[in-house]
Each structure stands twice: as C-alpha cells, then as structure tokens.
Simulated scan of single mutants.
Amino acid sequence: MQCSYFDAHACRSCTLIEVPYADQVRDKEERCAELLSAHTGLQWLPSVRSPQEGYRNKAKMVVGGTAAAPTFGILDAEGRGVDLRGCGVIAPGIREVLPVLARFVTRAGIAPYDVPRRRGELKHVLVTESPTGELMVRFVLRTDGPVARIREHLPALLANLPRLVVVTANLLPEHKAVVEGDVDIPLTERTTLAMPLGGIALDLRPQSFFQTNTRVAQELYAQVARWVDEIGPASVWDLYCGVGGFALHCAAPGRRVVGIEVSAEAVESARHAARDLPDVEFAAGDATRFALESTEVPDLVVVNPPRRGIGPDLAGWLETSGVRHVVYSSCNPVTLAKDLEAMPSLRPVRGRVLDMFPHTAHVEVAVLLERVVAPR
C-alpha cells in the first residue's frame, strides 16, 4: 500500500507499510509459532488476512490548528496539528465525512486544544462506522463550554449527514495523553450504534470497546463460536467480554452463557443485545475477582484480555479449576505465551493468527486449550 503521509514522514504509524503484505502475515505467523513453540501439539489453522486499505472502522483524530482551519490527525513533536484526513487505512465511509466534520468545527467556532499552551477546547474527534454505514461521532472537549454551540449547529450537521445517528460530547478536563474522559453528554436521541456482525446484532455505546477491524473481528467471533459448538459445553464464561461479542456468538439453546466486563457501559450494551436470550447474562465486574469468588465452574471459559494478559491469579485459577476447555483470544502473543506457561494442565491444541492491524507489528491470535491433566 502506498501512503503519501508515510512517504513525507508526516505519519509513520504504519511501520510495516513498505513490507509486502504476504511477508507481513508470514512474519506474524512465524513470531506466534516461535513464542508458542513449546506446545508441540498445537495445530495452526490458515491465517485470516485483512484488507490492506480501509479496514479501520474507527478514526481517533487529534484536532489541531485553529477553529477557522482545523486539522484532523495527529500532533507533531512540537504539538502542532498534522492533517491525516486521507489516511488510507481508515474506512472510506469515515474518510468522506471528515471534511464535513471539520467544516462543522469551523461553523460552531470550537477552538482546537493547543497542547503546548494548554488552551482551547476540542481535543479529539472520534468517528465509528457500523457495518451498515451508520456513524457515531464524539467530540472530546476540555470543558462543557462548547456544548451549547454544538447543539445549536447540530441539526444542520445531521441533515447534511443522514448516516450520523449518535453524537456525544465527551469531557476530558485533564491535560494528559488519553483519548477520552469519563463523561459523555448525549446530543442525539439515539445513544447506541447498532453493529450487526455475523448475524448477531451487537450494540455499541460511546465508551464501549469494539474491535477496530470489522471483517477480521467477524472471522474471530465465528472461529471461536465454531470451536465452542464443536465442544458443545452446557455452560460458558466470557471473561473480559466487552459488548458481548464472544458470548453472543457462542449462545445456543440450553447453553448458559455469562459475560463479565469491568466497563458498565459495555455491559449495558451487551445486555441490550441479549435481551431476547434468556440463557445469556452479563455483569459488570473484574474478571479475575469473579472467577476467584465464584462457587461454580463452567465447562468452557473464553478470555479476551487487554495486552497485559490474564495475569497469574486468573491463570492460576484456570489451572486448578477443572475447566475442561479454554479459548484464549490475545492481542499480545508475548503475554499469551507467559500465561500459557502458568497453565500447564491446559494444552493448546489449535491456534489461528488473525491480522487485525495490517502494516503494524500488532497481531491477534486465538488459541483453543484442552485439559490434559486433572486439577490437583
């Protein structure tokens, strides 16, 4: 993939963009295989490849410049805005609305946040596109001062962008390197974005996590669901469940599924999506604490932790719990390998690399584990 921003050294985020895509995937396969090479019985399925362009369903644009001429992209080393509206990995449906949103910022007179001087208001514009083309836009502000102006000009924006169905103002008063704050002010009647995926109607609220690559996410959920259906467990836990993607894809008549997620916002999204499924329930809480305090042990556990992995406490519980099967979806094969070392009674039998982030070193890998030694 050719990128003028990369060639001009304006943005170097896609560190592998000059590497042929087939080589990128092969290198990720080899890296995962090497990290898990101690597990000799592991069968690797063919990798899932991604489109090389337009695969990101979410754009996290740092806003710079001025209200009259805002930039959407990143900041350079001096804190000045670098405009990346034409970024090739962002979904075309998002790219086409970024100029419209930039004009909205100008009309509403919202001053971009000046990082070096700690002045201004608008820090980020976050845009998410659903598989149906609907959009969620979040304006990340230093204070709620501009909210009235956003409300004033919002009807014209909605008329101009009929695909735009969810708009919020997110408040991030602190001066720190994070994308969003804790408070979202809804500005539209709808507050959730429907994310239909593989026949499952997921719901996405403003602060809920969703996989960035829709096509590869669909393959990931489908693969895990196939493994689970082959085993046929009567009970499943989905730990770190997010908006319930794995739990809902693994649901089946007579199968009790419980999803645990620390984000209450994500849990509300998951509950809404599961409203017609009596055997599926979700709760907000810490995944490790839930497992350690539970008096029940399910037949199968799905874990999809952040990059730090599940950690020694949850790995220790899985090792001694008697759980027959575990499906581990990892965005960091290094911590995956470390966690597997702490669960020697659970043997990886199948694995699959899923290239969620082309042109970068990041990779998703899913592994099916089965118990080979009874717990002590």
Rank of each mutant, 00 (worst) to 15 (best):
residue 194 A to Y: 01
residue 269 S to Q: 10
residue 343 M to P: 00
residue 199 G to C: 06
residue 164 L to R: 11
residue 262 V to W: 04
residue 249 H to G: 06
residue 126 L to Q: 06
residue 109 G to V: 12
residue 359 H to F: 07
residue 158 L to S: 10
residue 207 Q to G: 08
residue 14 C to M: 08
residue 288 T to L: 06
residue 28 K to Y: 05
residue 289 R to M: 06
residue 99 P to C: 06
residue 114 D to C: 11
residue 293 E to K: 14
residue 198 G to R: 08
residue 129 E to R: 15
residue 94 I to R: 00
residue 278 P to R: 13
residue 1 M to A: 10
residue 50 S to H: 07
residue 288 T to I: 10
residue 177 A to T: 10
residue 93 G to Q: 14
residue 74 I to G: 02
residue 67 A to Y: 11
residue 98 L to T: 05
residue 342 A to S: 14
residue 17 I to R: 11
residue 325 H to Q: 08
residue 225 A to W: 09
residue 185 I to D: 09
residue 309 G to H: 03
residue 282 F to C: 12
residue 227 W to Q: 01
residue 67 A to M: 12
residue 237 W to Q: 02
residue 136 M to N: 00
residue 356 M to A: 02
residue 354 L to Y: 05
residue 256 R to I: 08
residue 225 A to D: 11
residue 83 D to E: 09
residue 106 T to A: 13
residue 350 R to I: 02
residue 184 D to M: 00
residue 74 I to A: 08
residue 191 T to G: 11
residue 310 I to N: 06
residue 191 T to P: 00
residue 143 T to S: 15
residue 355 D to Y: 10
residue 308 R to E: 14
residue 257 V to K: 04
residue 301 V to F: 05
residue 33 A to L: 04
residue 232 G to I: 07
residue 52 Q to H: 04
residue 92 P to Y: 01
residue 197 L to T: 08
residue 169 A to S: 09
residue 96 E to S: 13
residue 270 A to W: 11
residue 104 F to M: 12
residue 330 S to L: 01
residue 64 G to T: 14
residue 126 L to N: 06
residue 329 S to H: 00
residue 306 P to C: 12
residue 229 D to L: 05
residue 375 P to W: 02
residue 308 R to N: 09
residue 301 V to D: 05
residue 228 V to M: 02
residue 286 D to A: 02
residue 128 T to E: 07
residue 165 V to T: 15
residue 172 L to Q: 15
residue 339 D to A: 08
residue 234 A to V: 06
residue 91 A to H: 15
residue 63 V to M: 05
residue 357 F to G: 12
residue 211 Q to D: 08
residue 267 V to A: 00
residue 309 G to P: 03
residue 93 G to T: 13
residue 99 P to F: 04
residue 278 P to Q: 10
residue 185 I to A: 07
residue 123 K to F: 06
residue 367 V to I: 08
residue 255 R to I: 12
residue 29 E to L: 14
residue 35 L to W: 01
residue 323 V to L: 09
residue 233 P to G: 13
residue 219 E to K: 13
residue 161 L to T: 11
residue 259 G to A: 12
residue 233 P to R: 07
residue 141 L to T: 11
residue 24 Q to T: 07
residue 176 K to C: 13
residue 63 V to Y: 07
residue 288 T to P: 09
residue 144 D to F: 05
residue 123 K to M: 11
residue 351 G to N: 02
residue 310 I to A: 05
residue 41 G to P: 05
residue 140 V to W: 02
residue 372 V to G: 12
residue 272 H to S: 14
residue 196 P to Y: 06
residue 262 V to R: 13
residue 199 G to E: 06
residue 298 P to M: 14
residue 157 L to N: 10
residue 185 I to W: 08
residue 287 A to V: 03
residue 84 L to I: 07
residue 18 E to C: 03
residue 118 R to N: 11
